[in-house]
Design a protein around this nucleic acid. Sequence first.
RNA 1: GCGCUUGUAGCUCAGCUGGAUAGAGUAUUGGAUUCCGGUUCCAAAGGUCGGAGGUUCGAAUCCUCUCAAGCGCACCA
Length: 561
Amino acid sequence: MQAYLHSQILLVLEGMEGVPSDFVLEFQQPGNPEHGDLACNAAMQLARHLKRGPKQIADAIKAGLEALPLDANKISAVEVAGPGFLNFRISPSYLFNALSEILTTGSTYGHTAEGKGKRALVEFVSANPTGPLTVGHGRNAVLGDTIARMLQWTGYEVEREYYFNDAGRQMRVLGESVKARYLAALDPKIATKMIGEGNEKVEVPEPFPEDGYLGDYIAEIAKELVASNEKIDLNDTDRFKRAAEQKIFAEIGATLERMGIHMDSYFNERSLYDSGQIWKIIDRFREKDLAYDKDGAVWLKTTAFGKEQDTVLVKSTGEPTYRLPDIGYHIEKLERGYDRVVDVFGADHIATFPDVVEGVRALGYDADRIEVVIYQFVTLVRSGQPVKMSTRKATYVTLDELMDEVGEDVTRFFFLMRSPNTHLEFDLDLAKEASDTNPVFYLQYAHARIQSILRKADEIGMTLQGEVDLTLLSHETEIALIKTLMGLPSNISRAAELNEPHRLANFLREVAVAFTQFYGNCRIIGEAENLARARMLLATATAQVLKNGLVVLGISAPDRM
RNA sequence: GCGCUUGUAGCUCAGCUGGAUAGAGUAUUGGAUUCCGGUUCCAAAGGUCGGAGGUUCGAAUCCUCUCAAGCGCACCA
Protein backbone atom coordinates (compact mmCIF):
# COMPACT_ATOMS: atom_id res chain seq x y z
CA MET A 1 0.00 0.00 0.00
CA GLN A 2 2.76 2.40 0.96
CA ALA A 3 4.68 1.42 -2.16
CA TYR A 4 1.65 2.18 -4.26
CA LEU A 5 1.14 5.64 -2.77
CA HIS A 6 4.83 6.29 -3.00
CA SER A 7 4.84 5.73 -6.74
CA GLN A 8 1.66 7.73 -7.27
CA ILE A 9 2.85 10.75 -5.32
CA LEU A 10 6.15 10.70 -7.17
CA LEU A 11 4.17 10.86 -10.42
CA VAL A 12 2.47 14.00 -9.18
CA LEU A 13 5.67 15.58 -7.90
CA GLU A 14 7.35 15.07 -11.26
CA GLY A 15 4.93 17.58 -12.68
CA MET A 16 5.76 20.21 -10.05
CA GLU A 17 8.49 22.82 -10.31
CA GLY A 18 11.25 23.10 -7.76
CA VAL A 19 11.10 19.62 -6.21
CA PRO A 20 14.66 18.53 -5.40
CA SER A 21 15.72 15.46 -7.36
CA ASP A 22 16.85 13.65 -4.20
CA PHE A 23 13.62 14.26 -2.35
CA VAL A 24 12.61 11.32 -0.17
CA LEU A 25 8.99 10.60 0.58
CA GLU A 26 8.14 9.63 4.13
CA PHE A 27 5.04 7.91 5.42
CA GLN A 28 3.76 7.16 8.85
CA GLN A 29 0.83 5.53 10.50
CA PRO A 30 -1.06 8.13 12.49
CA GLY A 31 -1.85 7.23 16.05
CA ASN A 32 -5.18 8.98 15.84
CA PRO A 33 -7.74 7.21 13.63
CA GLU A 34 -9.23 10.55 12.63
CA HIS A 35 -6.02 11.14 10.74
CA GLY A 36 -6.64 8.26 8.41
CA ASP A 37 -4.61 5.12 7.90
CA LEU A 38 -1.48 6.48 6.31
CA ALA A 39 -0.04 9.97 6.37
CA CYS A 40 2.54 11.73 4.25
CA ASN A 41 4.40 14.84 5.31
CA ALA A 42 5.82 15.72 1.90
CA ALA A 43 4.08 19.09 1.70
CA MET A 44 5.76 20.31 4.88
CA GLN A 45 9.14 19.04 3.77
CA LEU A 46 8.72 20.76 0.42
CA ALA A 47 7.52 24.12 1.74
CA ARG A 48 11.06 25.45 2.00
CA HIS A 49 12.06 24.34 -1.49
CA LEU A 50 8.93 25.53 -3.23
CA LYS A 51 8.64 28.72 -1.19
CA ARG A 52 4.93 28.14 -0.78
CA GLY A 53 2.79 27.33 2.22
CA PRO A 54 2.60 23.64 3.09
CA LYS A 55 -1.19 23.63 2.94
CA GLN A 56 -1.18 24.96 -0.62
CA ILE A 57 1.30 22.33 -1.65
CA ALA A 58 -0.72 19.59 0.02
CA ASP A 59 -3.84 20.77 -1.83
CA ALA A 60 -1.91 20.71 -5.10
CA ILE A 61 -0.67 17.16 -4.49
CA LYS A 62 -4.15 16.07 -3.53
CA ALA A 63 -5.57 17.54 -6.73
CA GLY A 64 -2.84 15.84 -8.71
CA LEU A 65 -3.56 12.48 -7.12
CA GLU A 66 -7.26 12.78 -7.77
CA ALA A 67 -6.58 13.64 -11.39
CA LEU A 68 -4.55 10.47 -11.93
CA PRO A 69 -6.87 9.05 -10.48
CA LEU A 70 -6.04 6.82 -7.49
CA ASP A 71 -7.27 3.25 -7.46
CA ALA A 72 -10.54 3.32 -5.52
CA ASN A 73 -9.98 -0.28 -4.51
CA LYS A 74 -6.97 0.82 -2.53
CA ILE A 75 -7.54 4.37 -1.38
CA SER A 76 -10.99 5.64 -0.53
CA ALA A 77 -10.12 9.20 0.50
CA VAL A 78 -7.33 11.76 0.53
CA GLU A 79 -7.51 14.58 3.04
CA VAL A 80 -5.37 17.58 3.83
CA ALA A 81 -5.18 18.20 7.54
CA GLY A 82 -3.30 19.98 10.27
CA PRO A 83 -0.24 21.92 9.18
CA GLY A 84 -0.19 20.17 5.79
CA PHE A 85 -0.41 16.44 6.25
CA LEU A 86 -1.82 14.35 3.45
CA ASN A 87 -3.97 11.70 5.09
CA PHE A 88 -5.06 8.62 3.20
CA ARG A 89 -7.85 6.26 3.98
CA ILE A 90 -7.57 2.67 2.93
CA SER A 91 -10.64 1.44 1.12
CA PRO A 92 -12.65 -1.40 2.68
CA SER A 93 -12.14 -3.71 -0.28
CA TYR A 94 -8.41 -3.57 0.32
CA LEU A 95 -8.99 -4.53 3.93
CA PHE A 96 -11.18 -7.46 2.99
CA ASN A 97 -8.54 -8.69 0.58
CA ALA A 98 -5.97 -8.47 3.34
CA LEU A 99 -8.27 -10.44 5.62
CA SER A 100 -8.67 -13.14 3.00
CA GLU A 101 -4.92 -13.27 2.62
CA ILE A 102 -4.50 -14.00 6.33
CA LEU A 103 -6.93 -16.88 6.01
CA THR A 104 -5.37 -18.34 2.88
CA THR A 105 -1.75 -18.06 4.02
CA GLY A 106 -2.62 -19.36 7.49
CA SER A 107 0.34 -20.52 9.50
CA THR A 108 2.78 -18.75 7.18
CA TYR A 109 1.09 -15.36 7.44
CA GLY A 110 3.76 -12.95 8.67
CA HIS A 111 6.59 -14.41 6.62
CA THR A 112 8.54 -11.78 4.73
CA ALA A 113 11.38 -11.89 2.25
CA GLU A 114 13.99 -9.41 3.52
CA GLY A 115 16.38 -12.19 4.35
CA LYS A 116 15.74 -14.38 1.37
CA GLY A 117 18.96 -15.97 0.17
CA LYS A 118 20.84 -14.60 3.18
CA ARG A 119 22.36 -16.42 6.13
CA ALA A 120 22.46 -15.40 9.74
CA LEU A 121 24.22 -16.79 12.77
CA VAL A 122 22.95 -16.08 16.25
CA GLU A 123 25.40 -16.80 19.03
CA PHE A 124 23.86 -16.88 22.45
CA VAL A 125 23.84 -18.44 25.92
CA SER A 126 27.55 -19.25 25.55
CA ALA A 127 27.86 -19.94 29.27
CA ASN A 128 30.91 -21.96 30.16
CA PRO A 129 29.84 -25.34 31.55
CA THR A 130 30.54 -24.56 35.18
CA GLY A 131 27.03 -24.91 36.54
CA PRO A 132 23.32 -24.89 35.77
CA LEU A 133 21.83 -22.03 33.78
CA THR A 134 20.59 -19.23 35.97
CA VAL A 135 17.89 -16.64 35.55
CA GLY A 136 20.39 -14.27 33.96
CA HIS A 137 21.24 -16.84 31.31
CA GLY A 138 17.53 -17.25 30.75
CA ARG A 139 17.11 -13.76 29.37
CA ASN A 140 20.06 -14.36 27.09
CA ALA A 141 18.73 -17.71 25.90
CA VAL A 142 15.23 -16.46 25.17
CA LEU A 143 16.39 -13.29 23.46
CA GLY A 144 18.80 -15.18 21.25
CA ASP A 145 16.35 -17.88 20.32
CA THR A 146 13.57 -15.42 19.56
CA ILE A 147 15.84 -13.26 17.45
CA ALA A 148 16.73 -16.42 15.53
CA ARG A 149 13.03 -17.22 15.07
CA MET A 150 12.30 -13.70 13.85
CA LEU A 151 15.15 -13.91 11.36
CA GLN A 152 13.73 -17.18 10.08
CA TRP A 153 10.34 -15.57 9.60
CA THR A 154 11.93 -12.80 7.58
CA GLY A 155 13.51 -15.33 5.25
CA TYR A 156 16.99 -15.81 6.64
CA GLU A 157 18.63 -19.17 6.84
CA VAL A 158 19.53 -19.18 10.51
CA GLU A 159 21.94 -21.11 12.70
CA ARG A 160 22.12 -21.02 16.47
CA GLU A 161 25.52 -21.38 18.02
CA TYR A 162 26.84 -21.78 21.54
CA TYR A 163 30.41 -20.66 22.13
CA PHE A 164 32.31 -21.98 25.10
CA ASN A 165 35.73 -22.37 26.58
CA ASP A 166 36.57 -25.48 28.56
CA ALA A 167 40.26 -24.75 28.90
CA GLY A 168 40.41 -21.79 31.24
CA ARG A 169 40.92 -21.26 34.93
CA GLN A 170 37.19 -21.45 35.66
CA MET A 171 37.05 -25.00 34.37
CA ARG A 172 40.21 -26.04 36.19
CA VAL A 173 38.71 -24.85 39.47
CA LEU A 174 35.54 -26.73 38.59
CA GLY A 175 37.50 -29.96 38.16
CA GLU A 176 39.28 -29.43 41.45
CA SER A 177 35.97 -28.79 43.20
CA VAL A 178 34.61 -32.08 41.92
CA LYS A 179 37.76 -33.88 42.93
CA ALA A 180 37.48 -32.53 46.49
CA ARG A 181 33.89 -33.75 46.71
CA TYR A 182 34.89 -37.07 45.20
CA LEU A 183 37.50 -37.64 47.90
CA ALA A 184 34.94 -36.71 50.52
CA ALA A 185 32.44 -39.16 49.05
CA LEU A 186 35.02 -41.94 49.20
CA ASP A 187 35.92 -41.15 52.78
CA PRO A 188 33.02 -39.93 54.93
CA LYS A 189 35.37 -39.14 57.79
CA ILE A 190 37.37 -36.58 55.84
CA ALA A 191 37.96 -33.26 57.57
CA THR A 192 35.64 -30.40 56.65
CA LYS A 193 35.48 -26.67 57.15
CA MET A 194 32.89 -23.94 56.81
CA ILE A 195 33.38 -21.21 54.27
CA GLY A 196 31.28 -18.25 53.26
CA GLU A 197 29.75 -15.49 55.31
CA GLY A 198 26.84 -15.06 57.68
CA ASN A 199 24.04 -17.51 57.10
CA GLU A 200 25.37 -18.41 53.67
CA LYS A 201 28.07 -20.68 55.08
CA VAL A 202 28.68 -23.91 53.24
CA GLU A 203 30.45 -26.98 54.53
CA VAL A 204 33.25 -28.15 52.24
CA PRO A 205 35.81 -30.91 52.56
CA GLU A 206 39.51 -30.25 53.24
CA PRO A 207 41.29 -29.46 51.05
CA PHE A 208 38.96 -27.41 48.85
CA PRO A 209 40.09 -25.05 46.09
CA GLU A 210 39.98 -21.37 46.74
CA ASP A 211 36.97 -19.89 44.89
CA GLY A 212 35.75 -23.45 44.42
CA TYR A 213 32.22 -24.10 43.24
CA LEU A 214 29.77 -24.55 46.09
CA GLY A 215 26.57 -25.71 44.40
CA ASP A 216 25.02 -29.05 45.29
CA TYR A 217 25.45 -30.27 41.73
CA ILE A 218 29.22 -30.60 42.32
CA ALA A 219 28.67 -33.21 45.03
CA GLU A 220 26.18 -35.01 42.79
CA ILE A 221 28.67 -35.28 39.99
CA ALA A 222 31.23 -36.63 42.47
CA LYS A 223 28.75 -39.20 43.78
CA GLU A 224 27.99 -40.39 40.28
CA LEU A 225 31.69 -40.85 39.66
CA VAL A 226 31.96 -42.95 42.80
CA ALA A 227 28.92 -44.97 41.82
CA SER A 228 30.36 -45.67 38.40
CA ASN A 229 33.16 -47.65 40.08
CA GLU A 230 35.57 -46.27 37.54
CA LYS A 231 39.23 -46.52 38.53
CA ILE A 232 40.35 -42.93 38.61
CA ASP A 233 43.94 -41.81 38.85
CA LEU A 234 43.76 -39.07 41.47
CA ASN A 235 46.52 -37.14 39.72
CA ASP A 236 44.31 -36.97 36.66
CA THR A 237 42.42 -33.81 37.66
CA ASP A 238 41.35 -33.47 34.07
CA ARG A 239 39.19 -36.58 34.46
CA PHE A 240 37.08 -34.76 37.05
CA LYS A 241 36.81 -31.74 34.85
CA ARG A 242 35.63 -33.81 31.91
CA ALA A 243 33.06 -35.60 34.03
CA ALA A 244 31.72 -32.28 35.27
CA GLU A 245 31.66 -30.75 31.83
CA GLN A 246 29.79 -33.67 30.36
CA LYS A 247 27.17 -33.73 33.07
CA ILE A 248 26.67 -29.99 33.15
CA PHE A 249 26.42 -29.68 29.40
CA ALA A 250 23.80 -32.41 29.37
CA GLU A 251 21.79 -30.45 31.92
CA ILE A 252 22.19 -27.17 30.10
CA GLY A 253 21.00 -28.85 26.93
CA ALA A 254 17.99 -30.26 28.72
CA THR A 255 17.10 -26.86 30.19
CA LEU A 256 17.34 -25.25 26.78
CA GLU A 257 15.23 -27.94 25.14
CA ARG A 258 12.64 -27.40 27.82
CA MET A 259 12.44 -23.77 26.71
CA GLY A 260 12.07 -24.86 23.11
CA ILE A 261 15.65 -23.95 22.25
CA HIS A 262 17.82 -26.14 20.10
CA MET A 263 21.40 -25.23 19.28
CA ASP A 264 22.73 -26.14 15.85
CA SER A 265 26.33 -26.09 16.94
CA TYR A 266 28.62 -25.79 19.92
CA PHE A 267 31.84 -23.98 19.15
CA ASN A 268 34.78 -24.78 21.38
CA GLU A 269 37.23 -21.94 21.77
CA ARG A 270 40.02 -24.49 21.84
CA SER A 271 39.56 -25.26 18.15
CA LEU A 272 40.89 -21.79 17.37
CA TYR A 273 44.16 -22.75 19.01
CA ASP A 274 44.26 -26.15 17.38
CA SER A 275 44.06 -24.57 13.95
CA GLY A 276 46.81 -22.08 14.79
CA GLN A 277 44.69 -19.21 13.46
CA ILE A 278 45.06 -17.32 16.72
CA TRP A 279 48.75 -16.64 16.36
CA LYS A 280 48.46 -15.48 12.80
CA ILE A 281 46.09 -12.78 13.96
CA ILE A 282 48.81 -11.26 16.10
CA ASP A 283 51.12 -11.11 13.12
CA ARG A 284 48.47 -9.38 11.11
CA PHE A 285 48.01 -6.79 13.84
CA ARG A 286 51.76 -6.27 13.94
CA GLU A 287 51.82 -5.71 10.18
CA LYS A 288 49.29 -2.95 10.62
CA ASP A 289 51.28 -1.56 13.53
CA LEU A 290 48.38 -2.25 15.87
CA ALA A 291 50.21 -4.65 18.17
CA TYR A 292 53.50 -4.31 20.06
CA ASP A 293 55.50 -5.88 22.90
CA LYS A 294 55.78 -4.32 26.31
CA ASP A 295 56.64 -5.80 29.73
CA GLY A 296 56.79 -9.25 28.20
CA ALA A 297 53.19 -9.06 26.98
CA VAL A 298 51.68 -8.37 23.59
CA TRP A 299 49.48 -5.30 23.50
CA LEU A 300 46.72 -4.24 21.17
CA LYS A 301 46.60 -0.55 20.32
CA THR A 302 43.01 -0.01 21.34
CA THR A 303 43.86 3.69 21.61
CA ALA A 304 43.70 3.62 17.83
CA PHE A 305 40.01 2.69 18.19
CA GLY A 306 39.39 5.62 20.52
CA LYS A 307 40.00 3.87 23.82
CA GLU A 308 41.76 5.48 26.76
CA GLN A 309 44.35 2.75 27.06
CA ASP A 310 45.87 -0.04 25.09
CA THR A 311 44.92 -3.52 26.21
CA VAL A 312 46.71 -6.81 26.55
CA LEU A 313 46.33 -9.43 23.86
CA VAL A 314 48.76 -12.01 25.20
CA LYS A 315 49.83 -12.12 28.82
CA SER A 316 53.49 -12.34 29.77
CA THR A 317 52.76 -15.95 30.71
CA GLY A 318 52.15 -16.59 27.02
CA GLU A 319 48.41 -17.12 27.52
CA PRO A 320 46.11 -14.95 25.42
CA THR A 321 43.42 -12.86 27.10
CA TYR A 322 39.83 -13.40 25.97
CA ARG A 323 40.24 -10.70 23.30
CA LEU A 324 42.44 -12.70 21.00
CA PRO A 325 40.22 -15.78 20.70
CA ASP A 326 37.12 -13.56 20.54
CA ILE A 327 38.57 -11.68 17.60
CA GLY A 328 39.57 -14.98 16.06
CA TYR A 329 36.12 -16.41 16.60
CA HIS A 330 34.40 -13.45 14.97
CA ILE A 331 36.74 -13.56 12.01
CA GLU A 332 35.98 -17.24 11.73
CA LYS A 333 32.26 -16.51 11.73
CA LEU A 334 32.59 -13.79 9.09
CA GLU A 335 34.65 -16.11 6.93
CA ARG A 336 31.88 -18.67 7.14
CA GLY A 337 29.95 -16.15 5.05
CA TYR A 338 27.05 -15.01 7.19
CA ASP A 339 25.28 -11.81 6.27
CA ARG A 340 24.37 -11.14 9.86
CA VAL A 341 26.38 -12.28 12.85
CA VAL A 342 24.34 -11.60 15.96
CA ASP A 343 25.84 -11.83 19.45
CA VAL A 344 23.75 -11.72 22.60
CA PHE A 345 25.70 -10.44 25.59
CA GLY A 346 24.95 -9.40 29.14
CA ALA A 347 25.57 -5.85 30.27
CA ASP A 348 28.90 -6.82 31.78
CA HIS A 349 30.33 -7.14 28.27
CA ILE A 350 29.24 -3.70 27.28
CA ALA A 351 32.65 -2.10 27.54
CA THR A 352 34.64 -4.96 26.06
CA PHE A 353 32.94 -5.99 22.83
CA PRO A 354 33.91 -2.81 20.94
CA ASP A 355 37.57 -3.89 21.20
CA VAL A 356 36.68 -7.11 19.48
CA VAL A 357 34.56 -5.51 16.78
CA GLU A 358 37.14 -2.82 16.06
CA GLY A 359 39.91 -5.39 16.04
CA VAL A 360 38.05 -7.40 13.44
CA ARG A 361 37.41 -4.29 11.40
CA ALA A 362 41.05 -3.25 11.57
CA LEU A 363 42.02 -6.52 9.93
CA GLY A 364 39.90 -5.64 6.94
CA TYR A 365 36.67 -7.48 7.64
CA ASP A 366 33.18 -6.11 7.25
CA ALA A 367 32.52 -5.66 10.96
CA ASP A 368 29.18 -3.99 10.22
CA ARG A 369 27.80 -7.47 9.84
CA ILE A 370 28.36 -8.04 13.53
CA GLU A 371 25.37 -7.00 15.59
CA VAL A 372 25.68 -7.02 19.33
CA VAL A 373 22.55 -7.23 21.45
CA ILE A 374 23.24 -6.13 24.99
CA TYR A 375 20.69 -6.92 27.63
CA GLN A 376 20.56 -5.51 31.14
CA PHE A 377 20.30 -7.64 34.22
CA VAL A 378 17.24 -9.31 35.62
CA THR A 379 15.88 -8.72 39.08
CA LEU A 380 13.45 -11.26 40.45
CA VAL A 381 10.83 -9.62 42.62
CA ARG A 382 8.68 -11.50 45.09
CA SER A 383 6.08 -9.71 47.21
CA GLY A 384 7.58 -6.41 46.14
CA GLN A 385 11.03 -7.40 47.38
CA PRO A 386 14.03 -8.23 45.18
CA VAL A 387 15.20 -11.84 45.50
CA LYS A 388 18.84 -12.01 46.50
CA MET A 389 21.04 -13.70 43.97
CA SER A 390 24.69 -14.53 43.96
CA THR A 391 26.15 -16.85 41.35
CA ARG A 392 29.30 -17.70 43.21
CA LYS A 393 27.54 -18.70 46.39
CA ALA A 394 24.75 -21.21 46.30
CA THR A 395 22.02 -18.60 46.45
CA TYR A 396 21.29 -18.23 42.74
CA VAL A 397 17.98 -19.22 41.22
CA THR A 398 18.31 -21.63 38.33
CA LEU A 399 16.36 -21.32 35.15
CA ASP A 400 14.77 -24.70 35.82
CA GLU A 401 13.57 -23.55 39.22
CA LEU A 402 12.07 -20.46 37.65
CA MET A 403 10.25 -22.55 35.05
CA ASP A 404 9.07 -24.95 37.74
CA GLU A 405 7.54 -22.03 39.54
CA VAL A 406 5.94 -19.99 36.76
CA GLY A 407 5.97 -22.23 33.69
CA GLU A 408 7.84 -22.17 30.40
CA ASP A 409 5.52 -19.82 28.51
CA VAL A 410 5.51 -17.19 31.20
CA THR A 411 9.26 -17.41 31.58
CA ARG A 412 9.80 -16.82 27.90
CA PHE A 413 7.29 -14.01 27.65
CA PHE A 414 8.53 -12.09 30.66
CA PHE A 415 12.06 -12.14 29.32
CA LEU A 416 10.80 -10.86 25.98
CA MET A 417 8.26 -8.26 26.86
CA ARG A 418 10.72 -5.51 27.73
CA SER A 419 13.33 -3.83 25.61
CA PRO A 420 16.66 -5.69 26.02
CA ASN A 421 18.47 -2.61 27.18
CA THR A 422 16.32 -1.85 30.15
CA HIS A 423 16.67 -3.53 33.48
CA LEU A 424 14.09 -6.24 33.75
CA GLU A 425 11.98 -6.57 36.81
CA PHE A 426 10.57 -10.09 36.85
CA ASP A 427 7.56 -10.00 39.14
CA LEU A 428 7.02 -13.56 40.35
CA ASP A 429 3.62 -12.78 41.85
CA LEU A 430 2.37 -11.35 38.56
CA ALA A 431 3.98 -14.22 36.67
CA LYS A 432 2.02 -16.78 38.69
CA GLU A 433 -1.26 -14.93 38.37
CA ALA A 434 -3.53 -16.85 36.03
CA SER A 435 -5.74 -13.94 35.01
CA ASP A 436 -5.99 -11.08 32.57
CA THR A 437 -3.53 -9.01 34.55
CA ASN A 438 -0.83 -11.43 33.49
CA PRO A 439 0.07 -10.33 29.97
CA VAL A 440 0.83 -13.85 28.78
CA PHE A 441 -2.52 -15.20 29.83
CA TYR A 442 -4.22 -12.20 28.32
CA LEU A 443 -2.88 -13.22 24.91
CA GLN A 444 -3.47 -16.92 25.39
CA TYR A 445 -7.00 -16.32 26.69
CA ALA A 446 -7.84 -14.31 23.60
CA HIS A 447 -6.74 -17.22 21.44
CA ALA A 448 -8.50 -19.82 23.56
CA ARG A 449 -11.69 -17.76 23.66
CA ILE A 450 -11.82 -17.59 19.88
CA GLN A 451 -11.33 -21.34 19.62
CA SER A 452 -14.12 -21.83 22.10
CA ILE A 453 -16.47 -19.66 20.07
CA LEU A 454 -15.59 -21.54 16.92
CA ARG A 455 -16.20 -24.87 18.66
CA LYS A 456 -19.57 -23.66 19.81
CA ALA A 457 -20.44 -22.47 16.34
CA ASP A 458 -19.50 -25.87 15.02
CA GLU A 459 -21.74 -27.57 17.58
CA ILE A 460 -24.78 -25.65 16.46
CA GLY A 461 -24.05 -26.52 12.86
CA MET A 462 -22.66 -23.24 11.62
CA THR A 463 -20.20 -23.81 8.84
CA LEU A 464 -17.78 -21.74 6.83
CA GLN A 465 -18.38 -23.75 3.70
CA GLY A 466 -19.18 -21.71 0.63
CA GLU A 467 -19.10 -17.99 -0.01
CA VAL A 468 -18.80 -15.63 2.90
CA ASP A 469 -19.62 -11.97 2.41
CA LEU A 470 -16.86 -10.07 4.20
CA THR A 471 -18.36 -6.70 3.30
CA LEU A 472 -20.81 -7.27 6.12
CA LEU A 473 -17.96 -6.42 8.47
CA SER A 474 -18.63 -2.75 8.92
CA HIS A 475 -18.63 -2.06 12.63
CA GLU A 476 -15.80 0.25 13.62
CA THR A 477 -14.33 -2.37 15.94
CA GLU A 478 -14.37 -4.88 13.10
CA ILE A 479 -12.55 -2.51 10.75
CA ALA A 480 -10.09 -1.56 13.49
CA LEU A 481 -9.39 -5.22 14.19
CA ILE A 482 -8.69 -6.00 10.54
CA LYS A 483 -6.30 -3.06 10.31
CA THR A 484 -4.49 -4.28 13.40
CA LEU A 485 -4.20 -7.85 12.12
CA MET A 486 -2.61 -6.61 8.91
CA GLY A 487 0.33 -5.30 10.91
CA LEU A 488 1.83 -8.70 11.71
CA PRO A 489 4.33 -8.92 8.82
CA SER A 490 5.70 -5.42 9.24
CA ASN A 491 5.97 -5.83 12.99
CA ILE A 492 7.91 -9.05 12.68
CA SER A 493 10.26 -7.64 10.08
CA ARG A 494 10.87 -4.47 12.05
CA ALA A 495 11.54 -6.44 15.22
CA ALA A 496 13.90 -8.72 13.30
CA GLU A 497 15.73 -5.81 11.74
CA LEU A 498 16.38 -4.23 15.13
CA ASN A 499 16.79 -7.48 17.10
CA GLU A 500 14.02 -6.33 19.42
CA PRO A 501 11.48 -9.06 20.15
CA HIS A 502 9.54 -6.90 22.61
CA ARG A 503 8.06 -5.03 19.68
CA LEU A 504 6.26 -8.16 18.65
CA ALA A 505 5.08 -8.83 22.19
CA ASN A 506 3.61 -5.34 22.30
CA PHE A 507 1.97 -5.80 18.94
CA LEU A 508 0.27 -9.00 20.04
CA ARG A 509 -1.16 -7.20 23.02
CA GLU A 510 -2.62 -4.64 20.63
CA VAL A 511 -4.20 -7.47 18.67
CA ALA A 512 -5.72 -8.92 21.82
CA VAL A 513 -7.03 -5.50 22.84
CA ALA A 514 -8.56 -4.93 19.39
CA PHE A 515 -10.18 -8.34 19.57
CA THR A 516 -11.56 -7.75 23.05
CA GLN A 517 -13.11 -4.53 21.84
CA PHE A 518 -14.68 -6.28 18.87
CA TYR A 519 -15.87 -9.11 21.10
CA GLY A 520 -17.43 -6.67 23.51
CA ASN A 521 -19.39 -4.96 20.75
CA CYS A 522 -20.22 -7.66 18.26
CA ARG A 523 -21.77 -11.03 18.85
CA ILE A 524 -21.04 -13.95 16.62
CA ILE A 525 -23.35 -16.72 17.67
CA GLY A 526 -26.93 -15.57 17.54
CA GLU A 527 -26.51 -13.08 14.71
CA ALA A 528 -28.00 -13.55 11.27
CA GLU A 529 -26.19 -16.36 9.52
CA ASN A 530 -24.34 -14.28 6.91
CA LEU A 531 -23.02 -11.84 9.47
CA ALA A 532 -22.17 -14.60 11.90
CA ARG A 533 -20.13 -16.38 9.27
CA ALA A 534 -18.25 -13.21 8.31
CA ARG A 535 -17.43 -12.66 11.95
CA MET A 536 -16.33 -16.24 12.34
CA LEU A 537 -13.81 -15.61 9.61
CA LEU A 538 -12.61 -12.47 11.32
CA ALA A 539 -12.24 -14.39 14.56
CA THR A 540 -10.40 -17.19 12.77
CA ALA A 541 -7.97 -14.68 11.26
CA THR A 542 -7.43 -13.12 14.66
CA ALA A 543 -6.61 -16.48 16.17
CA GLN A 544 -4.20 -17.15 13.33
CA VAL A 545 -2.36 -13.85 13.86
CA LEU A 546 -2.14 -14.44 17.60
CA LYS A 547 -0.93 -17.96 17.08
CA ASN A 548 1.69 -17.03 14.49
CA GLY A 549 2.97 -14.25 16.70
CA LEU A 550 3.17 -16.55 19.70
CA VAL A 551 5.00 -19.15 17.61
CA VAL A 552 7.62 -16.54 16.76
CA LEU A 553 7.98 -15.79 20.45
CA GLY A 554 8.20 -19.49 21.21
CA ILE A 555 5.05 -19.49 23.32
CA SER A 556 2.16 -21.92 23.07
CA ALA A 557 -1.27 -20.87 21.85
CA PRO A 558 -3.62 -23.25 23.65
CA ASP A 559 -7.10 -23.97 22.29
CA ARG A 560 -8.54 -24.13 25.78
CA MET A 561 -7.34 -23.04 29.18
C1' G B 1 37.89 9.88 37.23
C1' C B 2 36.65 7.34 32.26
C1' G B 3 33.23 4.40 29.05
C1' C B 4 28.38 2.26 27.98
C1' U B 5 23.13 1.84 29.26
C1' U B 6 18.91 3.91 31.54
C1' G B 7 15.76 8.25 33.35
C1' U B 8 8.26 9.05 30.38
C1' A B 9 1.67 8.89 35.26
C1' G B 10 2.22 6.67 42.48
C1' C B 11 4.41 1.67 40.47
C1' U B 12 5.97 -1.61 36.00
C1' C B 13 6.77 -0.16 31.17
C1' A B 14 5.40 1.14 25.51
C1' G B 15 6.14 5.15 22.32
C1' C B 16 8.27 3.20 14.97
C1' U B 17 12.13 6.93 10.21
C1' G B 18 11.60 13.54 14.37
C1' G B 19 4.87 14.68 13.25
C1' A B 20 -1.04 16.29 14.81
C1' U B 21 -4.23 16.05 21.76
C1' A B 22 2.59 11.47 24.81
C1' G B 23 -0.13 5.74 25.57
C1' A B 24 -1.10 0.80 28.14
C1' G B 25 -1.26 -2.35 32.53
C1' U B 26 -1.56 -1.79 37.66
C1' A B 27 -2.64 1.21 41.93
C1' U B 28 -6.11 5.46 43.30
C1' U B 29 -11.13 7.88 43.12
C1' G B 30 -16.35 7.84 41.58
C1' G B 31 -20.48 5.07 39.49
C1' A B 32 -22.89 0.44 38.09
C1' U B 33 -23.06 -4.86 38.87
C1' U B 34 -23.23 -9.66 42.35
C1' C B 35 -23.48 -15.53 46.03
C1' C B 36 -18.83 -12.51 48.14
C1' G B 37 -15.36 -6.06 51.46
C1' G B 38 -12.53 -10.60 46.94
C1' U B 39 -15.88 -10.49 40.43
C1' U B 40 -16.94 -7.79 36.14
C1' C B 41 -18.08 -3.29 33.46
C1' C B 42 -18.06 2.18 32.77
C1' A B 43 -15.76 6.73 33.89
C1' A B 44 -12.43 10.20 36.08
C1' A B 45 -8.02 11.76 37.79
C1' G B 46 -3.03 11.25 37.32
C1' G B 47 2.73 14.22 32.94
C1' U B 48 7.23 21.04 32.94
C1' C B 49 8.87 13.07 28.99
C1' G B 50 15.36 14.08 34.95
C1' G B 51 17.13 19.52 34.07
C1' A B 52 19.15 23.53 30.72
C1' G B 53 20.38 25.11 25.97
C1' G B 54 20.47 24.11 20.54
C1' U B 55 18.93 22.19 15.43
C1' U B 56 13.88 22.08 12.93
C1' C B 57 7.85 24.31 10.09
C1' G B 58 7.62 20.48 14.21
C1' A B 59 11.62 17.23 19.50
C1' A B 60 10.07 12.21 24.53
C1' U B 61 12.85 11.09 19.84
C1' C B 62 18.61 14.34 16.91
C1' C B 63 23.11 17.49 19.00
C1' U B 64 25.77 19.89 23.32
C1' C B 65 26.07 20.58 28.48
C1' U B 66 24.33 18.93 33.20
C1' C B 67 22.07 15.81 37.30
C1' A B 68 20.83 10.86 39.04
C1' A B 69 20.80 5.36 38.90
C1' G B 70 22.80 0.57 36.98
C1' C B 71 26.90 -1.98 34.73
C1' G B 72 31.96 -2.09 33.39
C1' C B 73 36.86 -0.06 33.76
C1' A B 74 42.82 -6.70 35.63
C1' C B 75 48.66 -9.30 32.01
C1' C B 76 40.03 -12.48 34.61
C1' A B 77 36.27 -14.22 30.73
